[in-house]
Design a protein around this nucleic acid. Structure first.
Lengths: 329, 329
DNA sequence: TTGTAGGCGTTATCAT
DNA sequence: ATGATAACGCCTACAA
């Protein structure tokens, strides 16, 4: 484990010169630079980032805390963040909070302790607190879900849900149900709200029995949907709040022998790769996940580089992609 | 940004005492511990992990370098790694090499510079070099794909491919094609080898025209499969090397009007959540991704904690799940 | 242009 | 049981 002074000794210069040479600083004799480079290579020298960051009082690492690594929506966000961070010279470390508050707060502590330059987070819930970051002045950007007093990049998911539901109404479905995520998760609440907006606008009664909440996972949605079909009377339409849930809901519909589109019109959030593989293909609300991440990273870098602006909230639009699952036949 | 000496001052003790108290060390007057705790809380003190690691010459952070964050197989591995690391008191940072050698080697450099305790990596290719880690003595475990001279956790993917192909043969398919990943990626090569093993065992000629290579993504596989169907003559069976590719291959089959199972028997690697959603459901080779990650992490922790064992290679088995896509009717 | 030396915030050693 | 103090490896005034 060679250090800077080993390099200095081998190159017969001072550590200061090594530091300057290796960091491409100002005026160093090119001949010395060469000697230093050679010595460094010979020793397999890699600067100690810990020491460097300690001294400079800043790191070039961003933390991205997402609520579910196994959800393609969040991994797409991750790629967006990564791409802009990397080109700006920052590394990204990804942390998976798994929708669990304790894991999330542990990672927030780690972020503080490792003194990351900034944090992009999709908060697990309403009680998510980034106080620990705020106290230290670590810049934060919330993505996908809101968070008080910090920059945010969101999707206009309520409008999207409203449009999706209106689309089902226009297609002739009348008893439209909604399977959404747990209460307290803003995207889940918003999608439900949009659904209700659309029903109200269409002058249709909002039957509470047609609404189910489940974890953002296939299993929960499958149970919820099965139960819905058993107990809610006639159901001929369904809005599902994410693609993991869609897997479960579609299983349940099939088990119940209900044909997609013909018997039950379905729209789901997230344009999963398999959406066009099923028969009929699934109508979806496509969210701009990659952009979400890219915009969030950009905002964060602005903050880090001291561009002290006001708290900004950026809202991106989702897009309805009509396919066979929301057509009567 | 409160430091340990701020806490010391406020609690009117020495920094040494603060350090001992906060780290639950040996014998410290309980009364002082309380005073220190109170002072720390009051100041919102969080120890500086950089300084700590610099001093202790070790970090409690593992790096996991995977070749594609958007591939569920790798995110499942990530969860395995994470679960065991977290319970052992380590944090995991996830790095996405995106199957690109330059991103991979950048992350390897970062891992060294940040002095992570160890690295789990799914190497992008044959030329992946962890020399930089070896020189520093950073423990490494390769996962899913082999790597010279380091601990490895692999799947017996050649055998699995052979079984899958034999299953197609047994089901009566005769002109079986194979869509696999790029050359140089070991899993891709192994799956092809297993496919050939099975054909040979069945005394069937291996027609090179029935083999296609494509990126481990839907688009490439779709093109490859479409071309295969156009140019390879009769094709009534298909082995696909991962679930992303399966999406593309199935699209291509549908576009070509070939019915799953009836016209073309299909088996794909990876038990994707949507596999049972299509009609008929997809026969798959399920890989123990989570275990892969968990075992790799365990091996890595052993190394880190100085359990100097010989290079070990663990091979886990995959499991064929027969569904409708490999049945004639 | 190059070198010397102080300090970033901890932990650990050595006294007391 | 507690306190002073020397590293850990690097960067950067300041000096030469």
């Amino acid at each position: 484990m060679a250090t800077i002074s080993d390099v200095a000794a081998l190159a017969r210069v001072s550590v200061a010169t090594v530091s300057r040479a290796l960091n491409g600083k100002e005026s160093v004799d090119p001949q010395l630079v060469a000697r230093v480079r050679k010595a460094a290579a010979e020793l397999g020298y890699h600067p100690n980032g810990l020491a460097r960051s300690l001294r400079k009082r800043r790191t070039a690492v961003l933390a991205l805390i997402i609520s579910d690594v196994e959800n393609p929506f969040f991994t797409a966000i991750a790629r967006g963040v990564e791409d802009v961070a990397l080109t700006a010279g920052y590394s990204v470390v990804l942390c998976n909070s798994d929708e669990k508050l304790d894991k999330e707060s542990r990672y927030l502590d780690v972020a503080v302790e490792e003194r990351v330059a900034g944090v992009v987070i999709s908060p697990t819930g309403e009680s998510t607190s980034v106080e620990v970051l705020r106290r230290r002045g670590t810049p934060v950007v919330a993505v996908d879900r809101p968070l008080d007093d910090v920059d945010q990049v969101l999707v206009n998911t309520r409008l999207a849900a409203q449009e999706a539901t209106a689309h089902l109404v226009a297609a002739g479905y009348r008893r439209i149900a909604c399977v959404t995520g747990p209460p307290g998760i803003r995207t889940a609440d918003d999608r439900l709200a949009g659904y209700r907006d659309a029903l109200a606008a269409a002058g249709m009664a909002a039957d509470p029995g047609l609404v189910r909440r489940a974890e953002y996972r296939a299993e929960g949605a499958e149970r919820a949907t099965a139960e819905l079909l058993r107990t809610a009377g006639v159901v001929d339409g369904l809005l599902v709040a994410n693609s993991a849930q869609a897997v479960g809901s579609l299983e349940a519909l099939r088990t119940a022998g209900r044909r997609l589109g013909t018997d039950v019109g379905v729209v789901a959030f997230d344009d999963a790769p398999w959406a066009t593989l099923i028969d009929p293909p699934l109508t979806v609300v496509a969210q701009p996940a990659y952009e979400l991440g890219a915009v969030a990273a950009r905002l964060l870098l602005d903050r880090i580089e001291g561009d002290a602006h006001q708290v900004t909230v950026r809202t991106l639009d989702a897009r309805l992609i009509e396919r066979g699952s929301s057509r009567r036949n």
